[in-house]
Design a protein around this nucleic acid. Structure first.
Lengths: 243, 243
DNA sequence: GCCACCTGTGGCACTGAGTGCAGCCGACAG
DNA sequence: CTGTCGGCTGCACTCAGTGCCACAGGTGGC
């Protein structure tokens, strides 16, 4: 909340000192083998102050995610309503990548840490989940008048996050050597093209599970270069969907 | 591990007693307001025994996920190699739904609990994540020789999980009144059709990530009872025009 | 110069989750 | 009757996280 405001002037040095001390100890003796008391002793501050800056021991490992999430939310809120929604959420995901790419060494260290420690993995999941919900909330708004709007929104948000993470992790696994931007661009492009071309889904029959029986026609949407058997199967599936 | 073995003979009654006692207290005074000591007091067992059956307080809320995950893993491992991979993971996801649908009342109660308690939400995420990784691991195997195999696998696994959860949660929000199977079938069908028709993605890896690719589609409208040959001819005609 | 006041900090004690250890008891084999 | 074996229990301990209060330093009013 506080760090997302317009002014990024004097950072509290104590917070950074705690992060530095924590990572030093985490790396040299492991996360679980390091107590909060150890951290505050090294940083030479009171134990109580640690919990003033971080609500939990896990939070010190992800010191910048809170502000990044705020940035993403602001970015989505500032979007023009004529922009392609999927492109917009892909761009939002790139914000997260940028945060990681700003500090490759730190990101790689943290990645190794979260891979090894189950508790940190779980915590990271909850962080990622909040990003995903932000994307999904935006898409739900944009898809509000589409048949399966919330379903589409949730699925696309999940796909974008998965693609982003796939590229990000392969970059982290390479010790931050390759081109992270390019990898994420490629992954997101795949998702974008997979979803941008389904203005209304291929649509098995009725849109919501219980809808007042549309006419007795089926609507198929298929890529122009789709193999014929695929179209046939799609049609047959839609045919069978009558009840 | 122990519950997934072939023999499901005499269940330990103590485990069930603990679950029952825990939920009774969680519902009447809340999760965080209930201590483990309260639970074991109500169940009339020793405190130490609680942690013999559940590694943490959160685990008592999801007593059956461990075995369900084992079932899913077994289901995926038993798959024939000629089955459509996406269909297979959709069917695997249905296993989870079935577990929820077996005990609608219990599932709805738990859903309300996890919605309200951040700690439980986080724990649920780690559970869901393990399902997702199981699906992704299967798909990675099936897509091993495709260009972006792991990317496709991760994205599809995430999409399947998201679709499943979307339907599951809307069913849970309706107090388990509607038809959960139908809702999930519908959601999964959307994902399945969205991904089944991209055997090789639009852009193979080394391609310029931002290929505009208007990526045209054809839209067919046909009577439900139309003969198949008619639909095929219609599709071929649409394919031919403007190309 | 003095006094409220506010904010950031440290110290202390407390709750509650989770663990290691040792003892207890009932079952079962000899 | 006796040994021992596995599940159960109580006890003591560590550590994360919280509430409360006390203290320092800077600020503005008087």
């Amino acid at each position: 909340m506080s760090t997302s405001s317009a002014a990024p002037p004097a950072k509290p040095p104590m917070r950074d000192a705690l992060v530095a001390a924590a990572f030093q100890l985490f790396l040299e003796r492991g996360y679980e083998q390091t107590t909060v008391d150890d951290i505050v002793a090294l940083a030479e501050v009171g134990r109580r102050s640690f919990f003033r800056y971080f609500p939990s021991k896990e939070d010190v490992v992800f010191p910048d995610h809170e502000s990044c999430l705020a940035d993403m939310t602001a970015f989505l809120a500032a979007g023009e309503s004529d922009e392609e929604p999927v492109r917009r959420v892909c761009d939002a995901a790139r914000l997260v990548l940028r945060m990681y790419a700003e500090n490759p060494a730190f990101s790689v260290q943290r990645y190794r840490l979260t891979r090894r420690v189950p508790g940190l993995r779980a915590y990271e999941l909850s962080v990622v989940w909040r990003y995903e919900r932000a994307l999904a909330a935006y898409l739900r708004g944009r898809f509000a008048d589409l048949p399966d709007g919330t379903l589409r929104a949730d699925v696309i948000a999940a796909a974008v996050v998965a693609a982003h993470n796939n590229a990000l992790r392969s970059w982290l696994r390479s010790d931050g050597k390759g081109d992270a931007e390019a990898a994420v661009d490629h992954a997101l492009a795949c998702v974008q093209t997979a979803f941008a071309d389904t203005p209304a889904r291929p649509a098995p029959s009725p849109f919501p599970p219980e809808s007042p029986r549309p006419d007795d026609v089926v609507v198929l949407v298929a890529r122009r270069d789709a193999p014929l058997w695929q179209v046939v199967r799609q049609f047959e599936a839609a045919q069978g969907e009558s009840r």
